[in-house]
């Protein structure tokens, strides 16, 4: 039953995408992926996602650290706010960011129709990933080991690098991989702020949407297949990371 349900809704349709992209053979697929519009959209998506993943790796770990090791009034509210990007519909996220960083920005920062706007939108929707994967590991971390290191004369930087970082690393990388995967596939939050300008701010998902609208299903399927392959690779990578993490734990 479960397999049938999964097949009808997930597997057969996804297989149809891959089949459609190969309609004109492998060379046809390649031609569709390397059109100037598609390749620039894919390139922007990958570069922006890598940047977003990297910022998340640093900022997510930092926020998780502050939430676990620091204490200040209003911490519970901050704790709840972290999940807001998951709960907020992506189109609302885009609208919200456009209000602050758009043409009528009260701060005077106009990121609309710019690549930096895309990055901000992706940062918004991927915020919880690293925080939420690192936080539980940090909570369980044995403080005694750190104290032992300190009593043996290790400085703060050494303790972080040699004691804390190794145990956090699997979780940090898992969160980063999740954020990367999400960025690659993100659509709703980028659609308004990017202004959807081909060759400039158009990310892969938005480009696929445009091709569906103009009835170029084969082109849309080709770019989709690339995204699907990336998604599968990320899933496998996450599976491996999880095992690595549990072996260390």
């Amino acid at each position: 039953m479960a397999t049938l349900y999964l097949s009808l809704i997930v597997l057969i349709p996804l297989a149809a995408v891959v089949l459609r992209s190969m309609e004109d053979g492998l060379s046809g697929f390649w031609a569709q992926v390397t059109t100037p519009e598609a390749s620039s959209a894919l390139k922007l998506t990958v570069v922006a996602s890598l940047l977003v993943a990297l910022i998340n790796l640093v900022m997510g770990t930092l926020i998780a650290w502050v939430l676990v090791r620091d204490d200040f009034p209003g911490k519970r509210i901050v704790e709840m706010l972290i999940d807001l990007p998951f709960a907020l519909p992506t189109i609302v996220a885009g609208l919200v960011l456009l209000a602050l960083y758009g043409p009528s920005s009260p701060l005077g920062v106009d990121l609309a129709y710019a690549r930096s706007g895309v990055v901000v939108a992706l940062l918004f929707v991927t915020l919880p990933f690293v925080v939420r994967t690192v936080q539980p590991v940090l909570l369980e971390l044995d403080k005694e080991v750190e104290e032992a290191a300190a009593s043996l004369g290790a400085g703060r930087a050494t303790i972080f690098r040699r004691v804390i970082l190794p145990s956090l690393l699997p979780a940090m990388l898992s969160g980063t991989a999740l954020a990367f995967a999400r960025s690659i596939s993100e659509f709703g939050s980028t659609v308004l702020i990017s202004g959807n300008i081909p060759f400039q701010t158009q990310v892969a998902a938005v480009s696929i949407f445009g091709q569906i609208e103009s009835d170029n299903m084969t082109g849309a399927a080709a770019v989709s297949t690339v995204l699907l392959v990336v998604a599968l690779v990320m899933l496998v990578a996450l599976d491996l990371l999880q095992r690595w993490g549990s072996r260390r734990g």
Binding site: L14, V17, E186, F187, A205, I208, L227, L228
Partner: peptide, 8 residues
């Protein structure tokens, strides 16, 4: 992991 547009 699949993009919503790809789902559509």
């Amino acid at each position: 992991a699949v993009s919503p547009v790809v789902v559509g």
